[in-house]
Structures are given as C-alpha cells and as structure tokens.
C-alpha cells in the first residue's frame, strides 16, 4: 500500500508517519519511508540520527547541482533505493525526495 500523510504544521505528520512505518516493518512488511517536506526531519523521528538525515538531504541536493544526465538515469525503483535510501531501525528504508535550497516556484 502507498500512504501519503498530510496536515497542518505541527500536527504530527512526521512523528505519526515514522511510527506507522516502523510498526509496519516490525510486522514483517518491507517499508519505504519518503520525506517530501521542504524541511525534511523524518529521519530524526525514524531514529536514523542527525548525521544520516543531513547526509541524505545533502545527497538529494547534490542531484540538482549535477545536471549532467544521459546514461546515469536510474534504471528502476530498486536502483533508486540502492542509490538514495538508507536502512534505518526495524529495516525501514528511508530517502529524502524533496530538497530545500531551490524549491520549484509556483503555487503557495
């Protein structure tokens, strides 16, 4: 299943998502947790720690800095996870999919 968690600032989206992800993983599911916040903190709630959270944020940002495409497009989902996800407590795979320095212009 694929679940998106949305809501007002401070409502508990990140905290709730992280607990849901870990509980599912403990139940035997394979779980991927994606942080789509422009201010990504999900790593902290999942328990991967400051440094790893910041490393994944940095990795996401480096993607935009490096415009050169061509043949290094990821082949598929598993390839993307290999390259950009980190495995946290309970085996939850975690990746940052937003980035903060140059968010897309547009609607509020």
């Amino acid at each position: 299943m694929k679940v998106a968690v949305v809501g007002k600032g401070g409502a508990g989206k990140t905290t709730t998502s992280s607990v849901v992800a870990r509980v599912l993983a403990r139940g035997g599911a394979s779980v991927v947790a994606l942080d789509g916040d422009t201010n990504p903190n999900l790593g902290l709630s999942l328990g991967v720690g400051f440094d790893e959270t910041e490393r994944l944020v940095g990795m996401r940002q480096a993607l935009d800095a490096d415009e050169g495409d061509g043949d290094d497009h990821a082949a598929d989902w598993d390839d993307l996870l290999d390259r950009f996800a980190s495995t946290g407590p309970d085996g939850v795979q975690f990746a940052v999919v937003s980035q903060i320095d140059n968010p897309d212009p547009g609607c509020p």
Binding site: D37, N39, D101, P103, P105, P108
Partner: peptide, 12 residues
Amino acid sequence: LPGGTRQPFLGW
C-alpha cells in the same frame, strides 16, 4: 509565512 522553506525563500 507558511511553515517550511518553500515560500520564504522563493520571493514571498
């Protein structure tokens, strides 16, 4: 401004 980094640093 709304929470997060999107609006504040996009000219808003």
